[in-house]
Design a protein around this nucleic acid. Sequence first.
DNA 1: AAACAAATGTAGCCAACGCTACACCTTTGT
DNA 2: ACAAAGGTGTAGCGTTGGCTACATTTGTTT
Lengths: 143, 143
Amino acid sequence: MPQPPSKPTRYQRTRKDHSTETAEDYVEAVAELIDANTQCRLVDLAQYFGVSHVTANRIVARLVKQGLLRTEPYKPIELTLTGRRLAKSCQERHEIVRSFLIAIGLDSATADIDSEGIEHHVSPQTVELFRRFVKRGQPNSSD
Amino acid sequence: MPQPPSKPTRYQRTRKDHSTETAEDYVEAVAELIDANTQCRLVDLAQYFGVSHVTANRIVARLVKQGLLRTEPYKPIELTLTGRRLAKSCQERHEIVRSFLIAIGLDSATADIDSEGIEHHVSPQTVELFRRFVKRGQPNSSD
DNA sequence: AAACAAATGTAGCCAACGCTACACCTTTGT
DNA sequence: ACAAAGGTGTAGCGTTGGCTACATTTGTTT
């Protein structure tokens, strides 16, 4: 009888931690907002993601518990060292994906949207291929 | 004062419906499993996604309610016409993403994993660019 | 036919991520 | 200084998706 596809491994990794994706998004956003506004308030985050301040608040609380963010009641939100590191690597990956999409001919508005969605699902190998492609404007070439 | 980035629109679309992604994944899996095994049982689905049969069951129930799947107690799971259409388009998109990744030099194992994650986040424009790229083995060229 | 194994269903728990409504603190402006 | 406005916190609710444990049905095997 035919074997079922059964590729649980694949999915194990694909849907690893949704909360990890959220963590990355928020940490990245906090970094961007601080960069743009000097400080990051809860409302800024909520507006950034288009969610209520309640949702943003709960997620921030979780990330504080996880040691990525730091804040005090009614105070702005800051990045811990760990958070800052994570934000930086996410921003870099994000930018690579975005410029790759543009390099293959996508308009920058759509590249903005797609890169947000894609960034959490590219393996390091893929990121590296994207990076090289952008650099040369060419596909690989087994080196 | 500096303007905050504030790109809620982008995120509105990025995180549209997680349940839509799940729906697409499940419908696609049902199609694959039927294709491979003649029929699709709950256990097969559960194993495919690496979740318990309870989780799979609940999701199947939702998709039945949404008109994508059809089943009866203790019977195999089938696709409705709508479900079959959705499955087909997802499979096509998935395959385009997968072959694109391979075309830029990714190994097929990693391409399997990454394409699963990426497929839900590529706009039609991006899919089209991927498709053309695969066909020519070349980047675009504004035509 | 009875017994056993496997598949499915159901109950009930947990966490993440949405929300509204309301309370409370801070900041601003008069 | 005080009132209004705006930011933040908290209570409580809904949905999705994950689980274990247990009941039930189906199918197989003796």
